[in-house]
Deep mutational scan, measured.
Amino acid sequence: NQASVVANQLIPIQTALTLVMMRSEVVTPVGIPAEDIPRLVSMQVNRAVPLGTTLMPDMVKGYA
């Protein structure tokens, strides 16, 4: 099973992502693949992302 990127904390809207905000976890449905974590650093979320939420491509500006 492929690991996805999951929020390690509440990430407020417009926040630039850092490594400490994300973790990898095998979840359903599958979100952004964990191997993309380095690419996500400094990208902004376009909505508030609660703790434990799987990051989906449409939540990160410039990802999809």
Rank of each mutant, 00 (worst) to 15 (best):
L51Q: 14
P33E: 04
Q9C: 08
P57K: 10
R39V: 11
M22K: 00
L55I: 15
N46A: 09
G31W: 03
V60P: 00
V26Q: 10
N1S: 15
S24V: 10
M22T: 01
M56A: 06
V5D: 02
V5L: 02
N1R: 09
V60N: 00
P38S: 10
L17K: 00
S42W: 07
L19M: 12
N1F: 14
V30S: 12
Y63T: 03
L17D: 02
I11A: 01
V27D: 01
K61L: 15
M56G: 04
M59R: 03
D36I: 07
S42Y: 10
K61M: 15
N1C: 08
L55V: 09
M21K: 00
E25Q: 13
M59W: 12
G62A: 10
V30A: 13
A16H: 13
I13R: 12
P33R: 08
D36V: 09
N1P: 15
E35T: 12
G62Q: 08
L17W: 03
V5M: 02
L17N: 01
P50H: 10
T54R: 01
T15C: 06
D36M: 14
Q44M: 14
M59N: 06
Q14A: 15
V49D: 03
Q44I: 10
S24A: 14
G62T: 05
M59K: 00
M22E: 02
L19Y: 12
I37A: 07
T15W: 05
S42I: 04
A48L: 10
A3F: 13
V5A: 10
L40V: 04
I13H: 11
K61C: 07
Q14S: 14
I13D: 15
S4Y: 03
A64P: 10
V30P: 15
V60Q: 00
I13C: 07
P29F: 04
E25N: 08
A48I: 12
R39C: 06
R47C: 07
G52T: 00
L55N: 00
T18R: 11
V41Q: 05
A3S: 08
S4A: 03
Q2S: 14
V45F: 00
V20F: 14
S24R: 13
V20P: 12
S4Q: 00
A34G: 08
V27K: 08
T54C: 05
T15A: 11
P33M: 08
A64E: 15
E35W: 11
L55S: 02
V20A: 14
D58K: 09
Q44T: 14
M43D: 02
L17I: 10
R47W: 09
M56P: 01
R39T: 10
P38I: 10
A64S: 14
V5T: 05
V26C: 08
D36T: 08
